[in-house]
Design a binder for these strands. Structure first.
Lengths: 242, 242
DNA sequence: GCTCTCTAGATGTATAGACGTCTAGATTTT
DNA sequence: AAAATCTAGACGTCTATACATCTAGAGAGC
């Protein structure tokens, strides 16, 4: 087991936590294996049991360890697919999967932000926004309609950019914003008239509906989008923890 | 502030935690407001400061409170500070939002795992699984049908447990498994005959359909569930990063 | 009025000990 | 052999106390 180097200003429980973490990462403790008891670790690190406990509890919260009362504390099996928590770029992931993807811009206009849009973009009501409606195709079949709203103040020149067959997020980088995080609200909705026509389905057909707010690295909301996805041709996989 | 009723078998920190939670839910503590200091709460509840602390830390982990060192502890604003990446327990989050929630078990049986179920639960094909169909109500309206599959080997006795109005995940803890992580695949689908009848909608009505694999702290898949959620009464918010 | 310093109040870290409760396995009893 | 009981070990809860560190605001000095 690792001992603790002399480091100042670092709480003991952090040192212990990182010591155990390194034992796991370096393979000195294997998945499924029982780690020493709180009591033993306290003696080993020469701290009180409560201090050891605090470090262990951190690692449990992280998912690196788990424990069973009356039995012991064990190293968890690593979970593979970090993949699904990730926010992915439509064109990139289509290309990765060898799928033919394209998009067309149906409409682009500047208007006063509707109330809901303003709220999500943190603009004053009626603030100026750019609205872009795009239709995306997968293997030449229409799959998704996007109504995206961007703050006009941040992306004034974007209406002159080439927006077909590229991802909006790539264009945003030219304006100094890197997409970092998105909050998506998902629902199933019947297709309303115009959307149904664009997607080539009957009105009332199930649509996977998303409202998405996109934030850049500095926390600025840079995009609010209504997404209408054809239910039978679109699925979304997410990983969640607690 | 609420005082604590005499209840046996419930840890003090849990009583304090729930006391504070109820203060928030009932509006005695408003979002953004500072709650009493650890010291004051300790005196109020007549326990040691460390005990109060444990209760508060739980609520912080949940996202209901946040704190700033040297300043104080504050009630979080819903949907802003509160975290959406988290895997939430249906009954817990309903309670948090002050919504009336209930569930009934429609069917419970032991059968050989269908191929897809076996794959997700990492069982040999045809391995024995427990299938539980439940119907969940929100404010007395049916909202969700769940077809859950559990490995029979791990939860043999569960068929004798009380499963109505409790969350499966709470019951699983009795069997030594703590739910940590879930992988969910989302689609919009038309309601098929039986599901439509149970949810009280017309066949073809949009359903937010989920396939969910749930993993316990040690990485074991403990549940695979087909979820059929009424599109107009159910939404899911997720945060994603890249 | 402005800046700097100080301080009260709040959370963060840490200790040592006590007792509760659960689990698995060993032991005893039947 | 099977069932019931016991027990060591491990985690869970809780206390009372001490000191560290951070923050916002009060107060002193300019």
């Amino acid at each position: 087991m690792s001992s603790i180097l002399t480091t100042e200003g670092v709480p003991l429980y952090v040192k212990i936590r990182e010591g155990i973490r390194s034992d796991i990462l370096q393979g000195r403790l294997q998945p499924g294996q029982k780690i020493p008891s709180e009591e033993e670790l306290a003696e080993q690190y020469r701290v009180s049991r409560m201090t050891v406990r605090q470090g262990i509890l951190d690692l449990i919260k992280e998912g690196l360890l788990h424990r069973k009362r009356g039995v012991g504390t064990f190293v968890s099996y690593p979970h593979f697919d970090r993949d699904h928590t990730r926010l992915t770029n439509f064109f990139e992931s289509a290309r990765e999967q060898g799928i033919e993807a394209s998009s067309v811009v149906l409409k682009i206009e500047i208007l006063a932000a509707p109330e809901k849009v303003a709220k999500h973009l943190r603009l004053e009501p009626g603030g100026s926004v750019i609205c872009i409606r795009t239709l995306r195709y997968v293997n030449h079949t229409p799959v998704t309609v996007h109504d995206s709203y961007l703050p006009h103040r941040l992306f004034a020149g974007i209406i002159h950019e080439e927006l077909e067959n590229v991802h909006l997020w790539d264009v945003m980088e030219k304006y100094g914003f890197q997409v970092k995080r998105a909050l998506q609200k998902l629902e199933a909705k019947p297709a309303a008239g115009e959307i149904a026509k664009l997607l080539g389905v009957k009105p009332g057909y199930p649509i996977l509906y998303k409202e998405r707010t996109v934030f850049s690295t500095d926390g600025t909301p840079v995009e609010f989008t209504y997404c209408y996805n054809r239910g039978d041709m679109y699925s979304l996989t997410v990983a969640m923890e607690r």
